[in-house]
């Protein structure tokens, strides 16, 4: 942290490089979309790639890496915990699918 209270960030060259990497990942995502994968496989790939992108964005663009580690340790586990818990509603979606009244 410098005297403006802002955190260190990467240089512009590195930022452009990261931007390029992110665009490449988007390219991979689009490529995968048209590979006729099953929905589940595609979803798994896309989610992994999206979380990877998000990690890059949070770490460097939002420069969480250069803040106090406490901040990352407070925010990220809290969010992951909430995301994980929300997942508990999905078994019921399957139940809705399986017990759906077809003609009702």
């Amino acid at each position: 942290m410098d005297n403006t209270g802002t955190s260190r960030v990467l240089g512009m060259k590195a930022n452009l490089l990261l931007c390029f990497v992110l665009l490449c990942i988007v390219g991979i995502e689009v490529f995968l979309t048209y590979r006729h994968l099953s929905t589940e496989t595609l979803l798994a790939f896309l989610l992994v790639l999206a979380f990877f992108e998000a990690a890059i964005a949070v770490t460097y663009f939002m420069h969480l890496k250069y803040e106090s580690p406490n901040l990352a340790w407070s925010l990220i586990p809290a969010l992951i915990f909430v995301l994980f818990m929300m997942g508990n509603m999905l078994p019921d979606a399957m139940r809705v699918l399986n017990l759906r009244v077809i003609h009702w």
């Binding site: 988007v26 995502e29 979309t33 896309l46 999206a50 992108e53 998000a54 964005a57 663009f61």
Partner: peptide
């Protein structure tokens, strides 16, 4: 910096919206 954080976050959300809503 703060407004930038917000902007990056909106960008980050799009990184989920694009694959999940468009590509899927």
């Amino acid at each position: 910096e703060s407004v930038g954080l917000y902007w990056h976050f909106v960008d980050l959300v799009w990184m989920f919206v694009f694959p999940l809503v468009y590509l899927m």
